[in-house]
Nucleic acid binder design. Structure first.
Length: 881
RNA sequence: GGGCGCUUAGCUCAGCUGGUUAGAGCGCCUGCCUUACAAGCAGGAGGUCCACGGUUCGAUCCCGUGAGCGCCCACCA
């Protein structure tokens, strides 16, 4: 049993990922809550998971919020994203098609799918989609390019039920239309950004007078579709224009002047043009006044036949032309610079066009009320809780959700239209004939649903709903959802609304919201910026465990995660450290003929100080880690583990054990304890670093009776009071302090590390006893032989370091007064500072009388210690001069 | 226009309910190729905790104001 000298995670990570899946540990783990271990955590192959890395996935765009921590709750289930894989696939396919010069929009749904399959057959290519292996919906190996049938069924079921309850309706409404994608998109998919623009002031002649009414607009081309001009009824300036009409320039149409609050007397000229077909406010105003709606821009962003001479022009070209013509006509009063908030499509960055069209909507108000209640009542706990405010803000101001999309890929809307009588049929299965007129010419709606509609069903659709399956009973509601704040509304809010609606119960009890992973310059990762990180590349480079650990250490709640190379490098060093600790153990086992399967005992009896100490430390490490996990303080988990592994286990415990091996190549008791501590450490580390811990854990011992087949299934270390060994920790602290003092002095005095020194230890407590008991440790770790003095060292003795417990004096081959003086003066200054500070506090009447006694006495105690130390330092300084 | 957050060592950040000589990683300096690990070991330097005011016996922490930075939401022409 030997490990390669070079740590190469790539050699065992894929193996373990595959093994876990093949062995079905995935399912087993899900159901093993009975023994109190965990519910589910398998890091998907090659995905670093652990935190929200959706932004980093160039290949797949799958949300891989993978749960790495497993012992969180009794009912924790976490599977990766579902039909996002489908959308991602579509995008990848589109990209590849585009490279072949094929525009999917030009060819229609059926032709598109056919093309995809033809292309796939030709290229023999596979789409990289890590989630496939875990049984999600998008699977290229299936015979058709289809969505998961179970999910499709759930989607249809939900749609039909909402429709029957009147919570889904089909209507004409103003939607955000993306002329680039040629589909409607939801409000959330529009991102607003400020952009420089103009405000054009146009003067419309008032019919039957010689007056003009000046309106201001940021989009002059829409004036072609104006059907009114609004003024405020209270606006004194326009009192005399009530009931009149204006003649619309360029078209010559006469349109009414209406009274509406849309017109704000404070803004601009107080008069506003009304274009019901191309602006939401105008649309609503139009409805109030029964105005006609004239569409002058079509789905492709070109001007319609209604636009007269401008027909067929692109909307931006049309704007130029309209402005020119308005100027020629002398109605362009003036132009001013104006910053406008331009909405663009999240996906393709095209300027969104508000367009009236017929779409399917979900009435969200009734759903939102229950969702608000769920958080308010504490049925769902959001962590950190400041997100509740954001959540409520959105829920209270929620608007109906446009769920139909004019895309090719997705769940098709289960609605059919009868050609004969126009009836709309919403049904679970394709109807044979129209229930109203019995006609058989039925067409299914070609629109598909918003991807978040099906994603919103995730907590129950994945569990077999609408069937009452065992899984559904066991895992609904789940205990925890971990996600990034960027999809709080998109996904979390909708899961809550739909979950409550269809299950009558919240979908999860806790939502932990973490920050976004940002690049080294703190920029949000996005494809348009080109600063995304491909997890497949970085995990290949540093190892999955290292990347996970790097993310964890950076994941303080409420803050974003900066993803830097340095952090990954140091995490890789950490993984390497663990690897080498194991290597050391295995080499020595070989040397001393220890068989792992024999010596591997779980609850061994500690014999030596270092064993008692490491077990005690391990115990408090388990306590801290478990607590930090419960509080979602993941960076603290990482930090605690790091400190334990590196400082306690490697730098002290192993160093001390080396001495045992030098003495006697290790007694059985040594081996039992080392291996026990190491094994427990691996289990503690496993959620953070699953691969390296599994690899080492497997190598550590043969499958013996009662031992699980995988570390994933082994119990997570827990704290217990009786495992705390205060005496051992105290003694070890003293030993560390003595060695530390000696090392410090040696370095300070520039003593050759190879030179064995002698020293004298003066002790006021157990320091001499401790040093005597562990003289070999002092000798080897500090290269020092000690003899014993009294309680306090005389002042005039050379190099000395003191604590409250002891004075350590080193006998140097040559006096080095200068080095000593510098050191002592510095120490003196420091002490004088803190002493002055303490004095100031203690002489303050108010402080002494009002501060808690505990605080006052502790300061008194410290002051005494400082003063004692200062005295020694001063005496030594005097002795020097 | 509303809302949220940040400002601590050269860099990236911790610091959970106010009291420690304010911490970590990286970087830097000094010395070590000590057969687990140079992706390492030992030691060290480095901070007016953004500014000003307030509350308090006591403020990096709580409150207010200001400065700088970032994010989210919003249909004002």
């Amino acid at each position: 049993m030997q490990l390669e000298k070079v740590y190469e995670p790539q050699r065992f990570e894929p193996h373990w990922a595959q093994w876990w899946i093949d062995a079905g540990v995935f399912r087993a783990a899900t159901h093993s809550k009975a023994n109190g271990t965990f519910s589910l955590v398998i890091p998907p192959p090659n995905v670093t998971g652990s935190l929200h890395m959706g932004h980093m996935l160039e290949h797949t765009e799958i949300d891989v919020t993978v749960r790495w921590h497993r012992m969180l709750g009794e009912n924790t289930l976490w599977l990766p994203g579902m039909d996002h894989a489908g959308i991602a696939t579509q995008m990848v396919v589109e990209r590849k098609l585009a490279a072949q010069g094929i525009d999917r929009r030009a060819i229609g749904r059926e032709a598109f799918e056919a093309k995809v399959w033809e292309w796939k057959a030709e290229s023999g290519d596979t789409i990289k989609c890590q989630m496939i292996r875990l049984g999600t919906s998008c699977d290229w190996s299936r015979e058709r390019f289809t969505l998961d049938p179970g999910l499709s069924r759930a989607v249809r079921e939900v749609f039909v039920r909402l429709y029957e309850k009147g919570l889904i309706y089909r209507g004409e409404y103003m939607v955000n239309w993306c002329p680039g994608c040629r589909t409607a998109i939801s409000d959330l998919e529009v991102s607003h950004k400020e952009a420089p623009g103009n405000l054009w002031h146009l003067s419309y002649p008032v019919v039957g007078t010689d007056r003009f009414l000046v309106v201001a607009t940021t989009r002059p081309e829409t004036m072609l579709g104006d059907t009114a001009v609004a003024i405020n009824a209270k606006d004194e300036r326009y009192k005399d224009l009530h009931g009149r009409k204006v003649r619309l320039p360029l078209t010559g149409r006469e349109i009414p002047i209406i009274l509406d609050d849309l017109a704000d007397p404070e803004f601009g000229t107080g008069a506003v043009k009304v274009t019901p077909a191309h602006d939401l406010n105008d649309f609503e105003c139009g409805k109030r006044h029964g105005l006609k709606s004239i569409r002058v821009i079509d789905e492709t962003g070109k001007l319609t036949a209604e636009a007269g001479v401008y027909t067929g022009l692109d909307r931006f070209e049309a704007r130029k032309r309209v402005v020119e013509d308005l100027e020629k006509a002398g109605v362009l009063e003036r132009v001013e610079d104006y910053t406008l908030n331009l909405g663009r499509c999240d996906r393709c960055n095209t300027v969104v066009e508000p367009l009236v069209s017929t779409q399917w909507f979900v009435k969200t108000k009734p759903l939102a009320e229950k969702a608000i209640q769920a958080v308010e009542s504490g049925a769902i706990e959001i962590v950190p809780e400041n997100w509740i405010k954001t959540y409520n803000e959105w829920m209270y101001n929620i608007r109906d959700w446009c769920v139909s999309r004019q895309l090719w890929w997705g769940h098709r809307i289960p609605a059919w239209y009868c050609d004969a009588c126009g009836e709309i049929i919403v049904a679970r299965e394709e109807p044979a004939s129209c229930p109203k007129c019995d006609g058989s010419a039925l067409r299914q709606d070609t629109d598909v649903l918003d991807t978040w509609f099906s994603s919103g069903l995730w907590p129950f659709s994945t569990l077999g709903w609408p069937d009452q399956t065992e899984d559904l009973k066991t895992f609904y509601p789940t205990s925890l959802l971990i996600t990034g704040f960027d999809i709080l509304f998109f996904w979390v809010a909708r899961m809550i609304m739909l979950g409550i609606e269809f299950m009558g119960e919240v979908p999860f009890k806790q939502v932990y919201i973490h920050g976004l992973v940002r690049d080294a310059d703190k920029q949000k990762m996005s494809k348009t910026r080109g600063n995304t990180i491909d997890p497949l590349v970085v995990t290949e480079q540093y190892g999955t465990d290292a990347v996970r650990m790097a993310l964890l250490t950076a994941a303080a709640p409420g803050t974003d995660i900066v993803f830097t190379q340095e952090r990954m490098e140091s995490s890789r060093a950490f993984a390497n450290k663990i690897w080498n600790a194991a290597r050391f153990l295995f080499m020595n086992m070989e040397r001393s003929g220890v068989e792992p399967s024999e010596s591997f005992v779980l609850d061994s009896e500690p014999v030596t100080l270092e064993d008692r100490w490491i077990f005690s430390r391990l115990n408090s490490c388990a306590e801290q880690v478990n607590r930090a996990i419960a509080q979602h303080r993941y960076h603290e988990v990482a930090q605690t583990l790091w400190h334990f592994v590196w400082d306690d286990f490697c730098d002290w415990y192993i160093e001390l054990k080396k001495l045992r091996f030098q003495e006697n190549s290790g007694l059985n008791s040594d081996w039992r304890n080392i291996l026990s501590a190491f094994e427990a450490m691996l289990r503690l580390l496993h959620p953070a670093m699953p691969f390296v811990t599994e690899e080492l854990w497997q190598q550590l011992g043969e499958k013996s009776a009662g031992r699980p087949i995988s570390i994933v299934l082994a119990a997570y270390p827990q704290y217990s009071v009786e495992k705390t060994d205060v005496a051992a920790e105290k003694e070890m602290e003293t030993l560390q302090a003595i060695i530390g003092a000696a090392r410090n002095l040696r370095a300070e005095m520039k003593v050759d590390p190879k030179l064995r020194l002698t020293g004298t230890l003066y002790s006021r407590g157990d320091a001499q006893k401790t040093a005597a008991a562990h003289s070999l440790a002092v000798q080897k770790l500090a290269n020092l032989n000690l003899d014993w003095g009294g309680e306090t060292a005389p002042a005039d003795i050379g190099a000395m370091r003191s604590t409250t417990e002891f004075d350590l004096v080193l006998h140097l081959p040559a006096a080095q007064p200068e080095a000593q003086r510098g050191r002592l003066e510095k120490e003196r200054d420091q002490l004088e500072k803190v002493i002055a500070n303490s004095h100031r506090q203690l002489s303050d009447e108010a402080f002494v009388s009002r501060a808690p006694e505990k605080v006052v006495t502790s300061i008194r105690q410290k002051l005494a210690e400082y003063e004692a130390q200062l005295q020694k330092v001063r005496a030594s300084l005097d002795a020097l001069s």
